[in-house]
Design a protein around this nucleic acid. Structure first.
Length: 947
RNA sequence: UGGCCUGUAGCUCAGUUGGUUAGAGCGCACCCCUGAUAAGGGUGAGGUCGGCCGUUCAAAUCGGCCCAGGCCAACCA
């Protein structure tokens, strides 16, 4: 028996079937870094229109988690696709390096400022710590296959950044947005600093809820004010208004008791500890209150509105002063007594209502949470542990009506986890109104392209309702608010903007320490003694907020406004907003043209990931176990605009589809063995089926490019995978295997299919490049080795493949509809093949012959293929007969006008092409093979026109 | 508690302005192939479109309520 295998064109390639990604990706990454692929990408598009995606800086603390990976990979996919589309797309990564989390980590190791080291040494330690964090995160980001300017990222701790930040602040001062105000702010006793709202988190806290009597100085006034002097019974005993509070420590700062003007209040006669007593509480809460106090016998003496009592004087429960009753809409019947203890220094609403009544804002608590010297009774005590003492004093004074411990959700410091207090302190604010910033922002929002669209409504609502931005922090690791304030008037120096510029120049040389070490006289001269240097630093949200200026306006290749900001949806409150506000405050323009958001990752049950739940998926682990391309493919295949679900099943499915795409590429490569691009046939001369697949690929490519432009990566993955699995695997490649393997090497029939495969591969390798970057480059390098020169040394500097054309038109016989009908026909034939296979009459489809009984419409269509129809159906023979001649065993198909019979072949198997043909054995010297194989082995090679 | 968003087969996604028996791929089951072989092909079973109530001749598509989940915010003086 002759061995014909050597006469076949069997697949062969160095490209391995298995990716072995965890091992091979790091090697490839190394090559990219050594070859400076990012630099090549920039160089290849020099002078081309740019696309600026501005990277939001992750905080330089802790290892990256899956959310970081999602964010950076999405950006990377966009940048790579833009380069393929011909744009110069710089990608300058950044890190947020100042701020409390780093300080706290440094404190843990080095101790607090002033204890073991001074502020300067502390800041240096922070700098060093940030460097280590940046290095760790950078390594992980690079491992993901993200190509960016990793050698020159922007760091908010760079002295040039710090200097530019001060210049940005100067512009904001110039535009009159900054003011120094006294306000109750969230104050962390643990961190000894004011906190931004973003730094606050809620947690359950056990508190002492107490009801305290504020004795009415002149009880008769209640009756007169309520127009109730006619009542015969005015009751007996002490008369008081009872408040309810869960923060006993704020009582020393009490300045008033607030009632709701509209609510009905009652003066109630009760007996407590055997003593007759009268109390004023909200009528609507009376039953609940009496229940709480355990008082069954009580009598309402009089009722009246809260408004009626406005101005009534009350005795402070333990301080030697009298406070007024005031009214405010914030008082409700939700809880308590309907009478609210008001300490303007310790609550926002208290502060606001206090302003209306010109109440003093005396804050008796210092930054460490202790009552300041001179505070009666409590000087030196800590507010966090003073409750017991307050209660004891209230009991002594007999004004503690009730006490119980409650557990409620309470604001805590996000870092130190200590309960927060509100504390009125001098703070720096960017005003939303003073120079019209809010209106400016609301006007700018509709001009930005928000993706998805609901982002617009969201940020609009947030801007609309937000308070002034408190940008000062009483910490050490950050950019100083380098402003001189007049010691007496507390006014900013008239030349503040100019002075900021001078300080910026110093900071640019020596870093932020320059401010603290600055001799005021060197800038202010003789005025120096009248001014003091502000010691506060800027909120880190300000740092990252001004990257549009400090990065986009200073780095080569980028410009402001950016084409795109891309972050998680939480950044509507964070970076999107801080960037917008600072940008508008500086020069009245928005920092971005488009804002794209992605959702958060959740587990299989749609629950958020958290360490405590143990449902976190680490990107490092996926890279190490399966490879970065698997992680990237998961990111690309999720509709990231909403929640992104990760689970082991999802990752397993992703790995499956990865293999499908990889093996498709491998099969294409393997069948191009011996092919040189210059041997490609003109597209119009290809076998009809090959024209179809090129046409189809062209169509897919249009869709792929459109989806990249719309950042719809999951549609790309679906389309490419579908193309590989359905168009190619289940149809085209299955059919052309016969011709590819058995046609005479180098014949037109063979070159035609290789030409098509070549174009497919060229297109496919580019389609997947932004997503499966490692694999795409692996394919690309194999192509360079096995096929010769490529457009560029790396796929990332190439353009979308331009070798595809739409070849099928309505004018040709072989239009899209024709091939669709062939697929439909194949489905029907396959069903019958399956029936026969199950019955045991046939095995593979080449052991079968099929007879089609068709109507005239089908007959004319099938006639176009002639004898090549059998290759489309992958059977050894096909007989087409008129429907009228259908035999009894013919089975009606689901297609109108088609019945068919599948039968086992009676002929011998050609040992070369494996078709069963009646002419096998009829050729002398070639006894084992069929006629066309004889032609392919010894003759000119068979001719194929259609399949 | 409020604002915004999400909820279609085990998984990832399609489902145009409401209109015939809701689609695809993957996975799964069974079969075939052994010249893509830790690959490839075929057939098949899977969904009361989160739930309920409405509008309509007709709803996965419109409205209301509810449930689950996500992001953000607020609250509990």
């Amino acid at each position: 028996m002759t061995d014909y295998k050597s006469t076949l064109n069997l697949p062969d390639t160095q490209f391995p079937m298995r990716g072995d990604l965890p091992k091979r990706e790091p090697e490839r990454l190394k090559a990219w870094q050594e070859g400076n692929v990012y630099g090549q990408m920039r160089a290849a598009r020099q002078g081309r229109p740019s696309f600026v995606l501005h990277d939001g800086p992750p905080y330089a603390n802790g290892d990256i988690h899956i959310g970081h990976a999602v964010n950076k990979v999405l950006k990377d996919m966009i940048v790579k696709s833009k380069v393929l589309s011909g744009f110069d797309a710089p990608y300058i990564p950044g890190w947020d390096c100042h701020g409390l989390p780093i300080e706290l980590n440094v404190e843990k190791v080095k101790g607090k400022v002033g204890v073991k080291l001074d502020a300067r040494a502390f800041r240096q330690a922070c700098r060093d710590y940030a460097d280590t964090q940046v290095a760790r995160q950078k390594k992980d980001f690079q491992r993901l296959g993200v190509l960016a300017d990793w050698e020159a990222p922007y760091l908010t701790k760079d002295v040039s950044f710090e200097a530019n930040q001060l210049r940005a602040l100067a512009k904001i001062v110039d535009n009159n947005h900054l003011y120094l105000g006294l306000k109750p702010v969230y104050w962390s006793v643990g961190a000894q600093s004011a906190l931004a709202e973003a730094e606050v988190e809620y947690a359950d806290k056990r508190s002492n809820a107490i009801d305290v009597a504020f004795v009415v100085v002149d009880p008769d006034q209640i009756f007169s004010r309520w127009d109730a002097t006619h009542l015969p019974n005015r009751g007996e005993g002490r008369c008081s208004v009872v408040i309810w509070t869960t923060t006993p420590w704020t009582l020393p700062a009490n300045e008033a008791v607030a009632l709701n003007a509209e609510l009905e209040y009652a003066l109630v006669q009760i007996e407590r500890d055997g003593m007759a007593e009268r109390i004023v509480v909200a009528l609507g809460l009376l039953e609940a209150i009496m229940g709480r106090y355990g008082i069954a016998d009580y009598q309402v003496l009089a009722t009246g509105s809260g408004a009626g009592l406005e101005g009534l004087l009350l005795q402070h429960p333990f301080l030697d002063k009298q406070v007024p009753v005031i009214v405010g809409e914030h008082v409700t019947l939700d809880a308590g007594t309907g009478a609210v203890h008001t300490a303007p220094a310790h609550g926002v609403e208290d502060f606001q209502v206090g302003m209306r009544y010109n109440l003093p804002v005396n804050c008796p608590v210092d930054g460490s949470g202790r009552y300041i010297d001179g505070t009666p009774l409590f000087a030196g005590d800590s507010v966090l542990s003073v409750d017991a003492k307050v209660l004891e004093i209230l009991r002594e004074k007999s004004v503690l009506i009730h006490h119980q411990a409650i557990t409620h959700s309470y604001p805590h410091c996000w870092r130190t986890k200590t309960p927060l207090i509100f504390r009125a302190t001098p703070q720096w604010f960017i005003s939303m109104e003073q120079a019209g910033l809010r209106d400016q922002a609301l006007a700018a929002i509709p001009k930005v392209n928000w993706i998805p669209e609901w982002g617009q409504g969201r940020i609009n609502a947030m801007i609309d309702g937000r308070p002034d931005w408190c940008i000062s922090r009483q910490r050490h690791w950050g950019v100083p608010i380098a402003i001189f304030v007049h010691k007496q008037t507390q006014q900013m120096h008239p030349r503040t903007s100019e002075l900021l510029g001078l300080v910026a120049n110093l900071v640019e040389k020596d870093g932020i320490d320059a401010w603290y070490e600055l001799d005021a006289a060197s800038l202010l001269g003789h005025e120096a003694s009248e001014y003091e240097k502000v010691q506060d630093i800027l909120d880190v949200w300000f740092d990252s907020g001004v990257t549009h200026s400090c990065v986009l306006e200073t780095r080569e290749g980028v410009s402001r406004p950016a084409d795109l900001y891309l972050e998680g949806s939480d950044q509507h409150r964070g970076w999107f907003q801080s960037s917008l506000l600072t940008s508008l405050a500086m020069d009245g323009t928005a920092p971005y043209k488009s804002v794209l958001t992605h959702g958060f990752t959740v587990d299989a049950d749609g629950k958020k990931m958290s360490k405590s739940k143990g449902n976190v998926v680490a990107p490092q682990e996926i890279c190490d176990k399966l490879g970065a391309d698997i992680l990237r493919l998961w990111i690309a295949s999720s509709d990231y605009r909403y929640e992104m679900t990760v689970s082991s099943e999802i990752i397993a499915r992703i790995a499956d589809s990865y293999r499908r795409i990889r093996n498709t590429a491998r099969f294409l490569l393997a069948n191009l063995k011996g092919f040189k691009p210059e041997q490609a046939l003109p597209l119009t001369e290809l076998v009809a089926l090959d024209q179809w697949v090129v046409h189809r690929a062209h169509h897919i490519q249009q869709q792929v490019i459109a989806d990249y432009d719309a950042y719809q990566f999951h549609q790309i993955v679906q389309a490419v995978h579908h193309f590989c699995a359905v168009d190619l695997g289940a149809f085209y490649l299955d059919i052309i295997k016969d011709r590819q393997y058995t046609a005479k090497r180098g014949s037109r029939a063979h070159r035609s299919v290789q030409t098509a495969l070549y174009h497919l591969l060229q297109a496919l390798v580019r389609w997947i490049a932004p997503v499966l970057s490692y694999t795409s480059d692996e394919i690309w390098q194999t192509m360079r080795t096995e096929l010769g020169d490529m457009e560029s040394p790396v796929v990332f500097t190439a353009h979308w493949y331009d070798g595809l054309r739409p070849l099928l038109s309505e004018q040709t016989s072989f239009d899209e509809g024709f091939w669709q009908s062939m697929m439909d026909l194949r489905d029907q034939v396959n069903k019958q093949l399956e029936v026969q296979r199950a019955a045991g009459t046939i095995k593979g489809s080449l052991t079968a012959e099929v007879t089609l009984f068709v109507d005239e419409s089908w007959q004319s269509r099938l006639a176009l293929l002639g004898d090549e129809l059998r290759f489309v159906l992958i059977t050894s023979a096909v007989f087409v007969k008129p429907l009228a001649q259908a035999t009894e065993d013919a089975v009606a198909s689901e297609l109108t006008g088609v019945s068919l019979v599948v039968m086992p072949t009676a002929h011998a198997k050609c040992e070369r092409c494996w078709h069963h043909r009646d002419d096998v054995g009829t050729y002398e010297g070639y006894e084992g093979i069929c006629g066309r194989c004889v032609d392919n082995v010894a003759g000119e090679g068979e001719v194929r026109h259609y399949a």
